[in-house]
Amino acid sequence: MSEVTNNTAILKYTLRLADDSLILGHRLTEWTSHGPFLEEDIAMSNVALDYIGRARMYYGYAAELSGDGKTEDDFAFLRDEREFRNLLINELPRGDFAYSTVRQLFIDVFNSLYLPKLMQSNDETLAAIAAKGIKETRYHLRRSRDWTLRLGDGTAESHKRMQKAIDSLWGYTHELFELDELEQQLADQGVGVDSTALKAEWLATVESILSEATLTRPEDDWVVKGGRTGYHTENLGHLLTEMQFLHRSNPGCEW
């Protein structure tokens, strides 16, 4: 059992969830005005908004838990790369439309399993954020599934790009189902979610969608992890540089 008090443990856990949402949300905003066509441009931006909104709720709660006057902006804009605890899959560059679609599919299926469990949390705020998020995730999943089917079972080029994206992302999915001491402790207390228990259903759902889309599930022959301990890919630093620049250059600015 760790020495941290429970409050600190919940704060750390909340920041992990917040970082996942913010970093993925930011990656999605990079599609704004670069979407393949107007409707998808708008859809990506709307999904981004849902994630950034979710991040704000988590950071707001983290600020409350920290009780030292920190605000949601301090967490989002004034922490450095090694202090972020997001899972690596969220920080990878947006790639082409196939790549972003596959990442969303993997994360949407994951969230469709994770959030209903978090709704059962005995921490009321986390449960409330999850209850809000799951409604949005159902729409997100429907969209990423539609596009996976359409592109996977589409032209030779779209199929090739989808399979390439799946192969490039697969090794980053294992981290979604890792549980360290902190998350194990919170799962045991009924606060956090035991994500290891979600893997079988995640695999079954993803495999069924991929198969329907004539795509192949890759072998589990490589694994990259480190997000939860602050060891990131080189991409996160670049992302933060852009995301935090305005706030750091103009401390306290509002618009």
């Binding site: 998808e40 859809a43 709307n46 849902d50 969209r143």
Partner: peptide, 13 residues
């Protein structure tokens, strides 16, 4: 339906 998301997240096109 043309798109799951429209002018705002709460609407479809």
């Amino acid at each position: 339906r043309i798109s799951e998301f429209a002018s705002t997240a709460c609407k479809a096109l």
